[in-house]
Simulated assay, not measured.
Amino acid sequence: MGLRTAATALLLALPAAAVADTVRIATYGPDLSRKGPGLLLADIEKRDPQVLAAAAVIAHAEPDAILLTGFDWDHDGLALDGFAALISEAGLDLPHRFAGQPNSGMATGVDLDGDGRSGTADDAQGFGFFTGASGMALLSRLPLAEVRDHSAFLWRDLPGNLMPSDTPADAAAIQRLSSTAHWDVALLIDGEPLHLLAWSATPPVFDGPEDRNGRRNHDEAAFWPAHLPKAPFVLLGNLNVDPVDGDGRPEGYQALMTVAHDPKPRGAWQPPQDGANAVQNGDPALDTADWADADGPGNLRADYVLPAKDLTVLDAGVLWPDPETELGRTVQTASRHRLVWVDIRFP
């Protein structure tokens, strides 16, 4: 039973898209990346409980289009097809799909991180132990049209970029900006395009005082204001930065606010604000990732759906129910991330 079923929707305070010109756009990090190629497909085929839970979460939310981040890519799209079949089995058909090879896990043959070795996960275009690791996928009820893939754009070519000044020339000559991908995918609504501008940024941590990952995370967001389509658009994905708490440079998010607006989706339930959460300053209802374990940074806002300023937002939410409920247990089993959805009125 999905969000658009009245009883459940009312219980969760997540109202459904109710009129014909309303479109529900979502993003979700379902934790569907594994330690090697083919392992995700194997888990899908054996109906792993975590995989089934992620499919159930998506079916419950009933998006018209959803971006998945942290989803392993394979050349023939077998994992994506298999996962879409599980979502359909759970009650939601998303027949239109796109997934391209991500930069994560794409070998370069160059020592990108300057540790004196090449060929490690840190030397791929984006961190990854194998080709296709932790990619992205877009699934939709509505047809997809043109895709513009900006993933080969070089970091050094971004005006005003924050690439560390001591980056070796051979690394700068090949280093792509996207740690995963940057896509502009046209979603067709009654034949008119709504552009979904999708990306999944590198975490702004796991580096040294040079803050290479933090700088790249910032620039992955700063890319979009100069590369907007001349049509309605929605920015969405895992920005991997909280505007208030945690590490990272919130200026990247702030740059997006010059072209989009933030509906600030809220969850229906918030975990106890103790431990790492106790020292945070942001509104916990806006958090989208559960990192409140013993050595974690606390719960943070990482996942976003940001419509263009001229689009009307009708409703928005984070699917974070009470973990003592059946749905809450499913959400918790599926992923540390929570699904974020926004209903917009398409012009």
Rank of each mutant, 00 (worst) to 15 (best):
T131G: 09
A278N: 01
F130Q: 03
D157Y: 06
A302W: 10
D157R: 08
S179R: 07
L239R: 06
I189Q: 10
E192D: 08
V340G: 10
H261F: 12
G126I: 11
A20S: 10
G91Y: 00
S88G: 13
Q101P: 10
A221W: 01
H337N: 11
V259D: 12
G38N: 06
V19L: 14
D211L: 13
V259K: 05
Y304K: 13
L138Y: 04
L41S: 10
T333S: 06
A278Y: 11
R47D: 11
P347K: 00
I66F: 03
L235H: 00
T325R: 07
Q50P: 00
S88E: 14
A124G: 14
Q332V: 12
A173F: 05
V205N: 11
L154S: 05
A316E: 14
I87F: 10
D21V: 03
P49D: 12
G109T: 05
H96R: 02
T120V: 05
M257P: 09
A59I: 07
V241N: 01
L239M: 12
F98S: 09
L67R: 07
D190P: 00
N103S: 08
G208D: 15
R141V: 03
H75N: 06
D322F: 02
G105I: 03
P15N: 06
V185R: 04
A7V: 09
L177H: 00
L39Y: 07
A9Q: 14
A302S: 01
L327V: 00
A7F: 12
Y304T: 03
A173R: 06
